[in-house]
Design a protein around this nucleic acid. Structure first.
Lengths: 208, 208
DNA sequence: CTGTGTGAAGGAGTTCACAGCG
DNA sequence: CGCTGTGAACTCCTTCACACAG
């Protein structure tokens, strides 16, 4: 694949292409041009071609891209060709929403468990995924070789929960709490910062 | 203020500074240097100075920035100096989570109502905010001059709900559904795309 | 002598323009 | 001819280096 590591901006766009390709496949469209992808995504056709060309020559000149072939290529690039096991830490409203969403709408990931500290909800099920005590993170994460944790506990408990996640060998944390997490260098934290996005939006809402 | 319009990247960082300044103020720290802000945020000190300098000279050479003064300047730049009224459309788990978060943790915005179609939850309260029928969006939005809507309904209903939001005069939609919304040019849609962010993360989880 | 403010240099990513292949 | 693939130009942002004010 690519010589040097892929730019973040490209990696952010790949899942957008993937979603459109999945839609096209259910509608049995088997060829798509960069121009059409451009109309669907809002990105320019040149940019889309550059993004894809970064990983190889997937298209046919004069024709376009084979939908199913391109979909498989993107799946492989992202790493979604094999099932990815994730966990959700925190069974509050946000945790439940994310769990349900991923179970029902995201075929590429598998939620193996939801963790919480509240004894009242331990044992409950979110669709078919059980809520289990946080103390079991390591056991379950190791057993299912979990790669990613979605962290949705209140900010005050975020660091403690993050420590447990790190101890269990998980190296990617999608952090929805406001806390800045302290983790070892080999762990990658991605902050969702919905409140910060909302505040940025307010700038655009007021200054026009 | 700035001669030409502020870069998006700057606007995205301002709320980050704001959060830290708020923390410092509760701890009664009244001077902060760009170096210290750098340690807190991970952005370089030069970048932070450039960001702030874009809007004016807010610091004191040899000393740093006055915490409270800088906080007030940033509030004014973003437009958070006056209370911003928002609505949440969709009282599912995600809508409830966002509502509660903004009521309890975000002093700069005011959630005036949560909207849903389910008659069973109409009239319920999320903390002190009432759940009302979607048919009332326009009435409430006009009355409270609402600027921003958080859209958390299922994807199938997202376009219908967006149409109602647009009709009510709201010009900024923070879209958490997967649907690409069709709106007039004067309406700004910001997509949260949590599933796309998760898929990008999986790339980083597998390729190292 | 410290830490801000800023022109100048550098780098990353996007757009342009067109060559190349089906 | 059509649409991909790609060097070159360009734009936007970041980093560097230092002048300048307290």
């Amino acid at each position: 694949m690519g010589r040097k590591s892929a730019p973040k901006s490209v990696i952010r766009r790949l899942p957008v292409y993937l979603r459109i390709l999945d839609n096209l496949l259910t509608n049995e469209v088997d060829i798509i041009s960069s121009k059409e992808l451009s109309d669907e995504t809002g990105f320019t056709a040149e940019q889309i071609r550059k993004d894809l060309a970064f990983f190889g020559a997937f298209g046919t000149r004069g024709t376009g891209y084979n939908t199913s072939f391109l979909r498989d290529k993107i799946l492989k690039i992202i790493g979604l060709d094999k099932q990815t096991n994730i966990i959700v830490v925190g069974a509050g409203h946000l945790g439940i929403a994310l769990t349900r969403y991923n179970i029902t709408k995201n075929p590429y990931v598998n939620v193996v468990a939801v963790f919480d500290v509240d004894p009242n909800i331990i044992g409950e099920k979110i669709i078919d995924v059980e809520v289990v005590p946080i103390s079991k993170i390591k056991e379950i994460a190791v057993k299912h070789s979990v790669k990613v944790a979605l962290l949705t506990v209140p900010s005050e408990q975020a660091q403690i929960a993050a420590d447990e996640i790190v101890k269990s060998g998980i190296t990617v944390i999608f952090n929805f709490s406001l806390s800045k997490l302290r983790v070892p260098d080999n762990v990658y934290v991605h902050n969702a910062d919905l409140s910060i996005e909302l505040q940025s939006l307010i700038y655009y809402a007021t200054s026009k």
